[in-house]
């Protein structure tokens, strides 16, 4: 088993980001290095002025899914942002914005929440991936 987990986050809805944050925190607790590469709508959700907003759910969630997620939230489930912050505190978690997505969405580095560590291209992402598995969410 590789010591590095690599996540490419594409979707910007709260359910997918929550799933990604849980995978990240679990890996960090096991001492794995985690590289996160933010593309498209996931990147958009990491804008400083949007990160705390409601980002909706994937279409398959439907009304029942929405209700289930709301109930979990009301019961005090940690947000994906908080879960990621905890994972960063615990282990070696690096969150990078995809430079092409930055251009497409007209995002400047100063627009991003400080939880994002920097901006890189896909080549740097592959180099850092270190032969570990790459998961696309």
């Amino acid at each position: 088993m590789s010591d590095t987990l690599n996540l490419v986050l594409f979707s910007g809805t709260d359910d997918k980001l929550q799933a990604a944050a849980v995978l990240t925190a679990g890996a960090a607790a096991l001492g794995k290095r985690v590289n996160i590469f933010l593309q498209y709508w996931a990147l958009d959700s990491f804008r400083a002025d949007r990160i705390d907003l409601d980002h909706g759910l994937a279409p398959e969630a439907g009304e029942a899914g929405r209700a289930a997620v709301d109930a979990l939230r009301a019961a005090g489930q940690a947000s994906w942002k908080y879960t990621l912050a905890q994972a960063k505190e615990l282990g070696d978690v690096d969150i990078q914005a995809c430079s092409l997505s930055m251009d497409i969405l007209h995002i400047e580095e100063s627009d991003l929440d400080p939880i994002v560590d920097g901006v890189e291209g896909v080549t740097a992402f592959y180099l850092n991936a270190d032969d570990g598995e790459i998961v696309f969410i």
Binding site: V22, A25, G26, A28, A29, L72, A75, G76, Q77, A78, T83, Q86, A87, E89, L90, G91
Partner: peptide, 17 residues
């Protein structure tokens, strides 16, 4: 208690460090 996955493990890993 009351924390959902993966927070119990995260809190444990933090504490044991």
């Amino acid at each position: 208690k009351g924390l959902s996955c993966p927070m119990p493990i995260v809190k444990t890993a933090q504490a044991i460090k």
